[in-house]
């Protein structure tokens, strides 16, 4: 047999390797039972962090992610919590601290349920405020709730990493998903304000803006044509993978980004350059 495909490498993180880069760190990844979140959790686990795999409904898939990390010799546990429910999140952060120690790294990845269907999206002239409101609650509200629970501990120890997944649509709304994209843009503003306020305590706050990630549940209805068009418009000529996003998370979670805060890193093959 020749070497297996990258997605099947034994490190389980699509060629991102393994290390003790994050040894001793405790990370919470929200929405980590599938897609990008699962790849981020596996990558953090493969590089030494103890990982809290947060999920809303997919207990089985969350447990699988935990098993994947454990098979690499890493530490992980799944925790159910709705990220917009402050009490549930507080309980989760306490439970994580109990299990692994205080939380050092928060990855806000959970997404308020949303279907990216370019053919049945709401237009500017028919989208109700309730849709925006729901996305603000999910994106800004979710990030807010998790940060509120994690910040006190981080501030006390003078160290912390808050990483929030947004979208490159905030700079290039190729398909105008009004409510989703507006809320994601707001998350960048939210993060920069946190960065300004938390910098003095050694806490960095950064965002990652991926391009379209095919193969995830959220992107299932993106059309083949849309993917082809995006690929040819992208300098690196392909769509984004969960591993691409996980690589950027490793950077922001590690000491390699010690002096970076308030940034928004576009991980979309150069589609957006800024």
């Amino acid at each position: 047999m020749n070497a297996p495909a990258a997605s099947e490498l034994p490190d389980g993180v699509s060629g991102l390797g393994r290390s003790d880069l994050l040894a001793g760190r405790v990370a919470v990844v929200t929405g980590a039972s599938r897609g990008i979140g699962a790849a981020i959790a596996r990558a953090l686990g493969a590089h030494g962090a103890a990982v809290a795999v947060n999920y809303l409904r997919n207990a089985d898939r969350a447990r699988q992610v935990v098993r994947d990390i454990q098979q690499l010799g890493g530490r992980a546990e799944s925790f159910a919590a709705d990220v917009t429910d402050a009490a549930a999140v507080a309980d989760m952060v306490a439970a994580v601290a109990e299990r692994f120690g205080p939380v050092d790294v928060v990855v806000n990845n959970a997404l308020h349920s949303y279907t990216f269907d370019p053919l049945s999206r709401r237009t500017a002239w028919d989208i109700p405020w309730a849709d925006y409101s729901a996305q603000f609650t999910g994106s800004v509200g979710g990030a807010y709730t998790v940060c509120q629970a994690a910040i006190p501990g981080m501030r006390a120890r003078g160290n912390g990493r808050i990483i929030t997944i947004v979208s490159d649509l905030i700079e290039r709304p190729g398909v105008p998903y009004h409510d989703y994209t507006t809320a994601k843009a707001a998350v960048v503003g939210f993060s920069r304000n946190l960065a300004a306020d938390l910098g003095p305590f050694g806490i960095t706050v950064n965002c990652i803006a991926p391009g379209l990630v095919p193969g995830t549940d959220s992107s299932a209805v993106a059309t083949d044509e849309q993917r082809d068009d995006l690929e040819s418009a992208t300098p690196l000529r392909r769509l984004t993978t969960p591993a691409d996003v996980a690589g950027a998370v490793l950077f922001f979670a590690s000491r390699w980004s010690d002096h970076v805060t308030g940034a928004c890193l576009f991980v979309d093959g150069g589609l957006v350059m800024r």
Partner: peptide, 24 residues
Amino acid sequence: AGEMARFEVTRPRARLGLADSAAI
């Protein structure tokens, strides 16, 4: 070569038997 590498990311080639790998 760059485009072949990208095609491999999204549509990986099938796994090969020994003889086919050896030929490559």
